[in-house]
């Protein structure tokens, strides 16, 4: 009997939380369209989330591209298909690894930072103070961050795609004796616009989800330093899990089997 009650309570709690996050997300998105829009806060978020994530996203991409080249080479040797390395590598990076890895890195960096910053503002009453100063915290704190992350993640992913393919290029040409021009030519003939665009669409969705998680857990945090710590942890875990789940859903939409 208690087992049923516990299961029911858990399910209801999960549904309630999902409902709250959805409400929060739509409120955050609605705030873009009903003025005022705080451009300064938006630019600051663009720089902080997008620009400063470049090094870590680039490093992730180049090492992953390089390792991927070795793995694909080794695997495809078994059935003498190693000449298709550039094609397989590029489609893997552009459709899957670029968006997912960049999103996970940004989830680690940005959603934790948002949760910690907004959470600290919550527990030190800065958010209340903002309300009493006639500024809607949703418009000043939440909306610019969500929009900035949604817009910058596709750009970061595009850069990650290029750097990742370049990482594969370095290994293929200097370690596996591929011809450089052939590597490039194979990829450019093989890749379709669809491959790249679906990856970028994914990135936009991931950016939205990551920032919603960071903002939501920060905004609803309570209970001092410990509460902010918990909010930060939950935000990163939730962002990563939601990105991976959304990745499967979107992929299954894009790939018509």
């Amino acid at each position: 009997m208690n087992l049923f009650a516990a299961t029911g309570r858990l399910t209801l709690d999960a549904l309630r939380e999902t409902g709250r996050i959805s409400g929060f997300a739509s409120q955050g998105a609605m705030a873009w369209f009903t003025g005022p829009f705080y451009w300064r806060a938006f630019y600051a978020a663009l720089i902080r989330i997008g620009f400063t994530s470049l090094p870590v996203v680039g490093l992730t991409a180049i090492f992953t591209g390089a390792a991927l080249a070795l793995n694909i080479y080794d695997g495809s040797l078994r059935f003498n298909a190693e000449t298709f390395l550039p094609q397989i590598l590029s489609v893997s990076i552009v459709r899957e690894l670029g968006p997912v890895l960049a999103a996970l890195m940004v989830a680690g960096r940005a959603s934790s930072a948002m949760a910690a910053e907004i959470g600290t503002m919550r527990v030190t009453e800065q958010i209340d103070a903002m309300s009493t100063l006639a500024v809607n915290p949703f418009k000043y704190l939440i909306a610019p961050r969500i929009l900035a992350t949604t817009l910058t993640l596709p750009i970061l992913v595009l850069i990650a795609d290029i750097i990742g393919i370049y990482g594969g290029y370095l290994v293929s040409v200097y370690a596996l004796d591929f011809g450089g021009p052939v590597y490039i030519q194979n990829i450019s003939e093989f890749l379709e616009t669809r491959d790249i665009v679906t990856g970028l669409v994914k990135a936009g969705v991931f950016g939205f989800l990551i920032s919603v998680m960071g903002c939501y857990y920060g905004y609803t945090s309570s209970g001092g330093a410990q509460g902010v710590g918990a909010a930060t942890r939950t935000a990163v875990v939730a962002a990563a899990v939601v990105v991976l789940a959304a990745n499967y859903l979107l992929t299954s939409l894009f790939v018509q089997v």
Partner: peptide, 20 residues
């Protein structure tokens, strides 16, 4: 209601609550 109130009031918070 909230806009009506915030428009004509100010509050000093216990921990100052300055935007850091």
């Amino acid at each position: 209601d909230r806009r009506f109130m915030t428009k004509q009031s100010g509050m000093l918070f216990q921990g100052s609550a300055l935007f850091d």
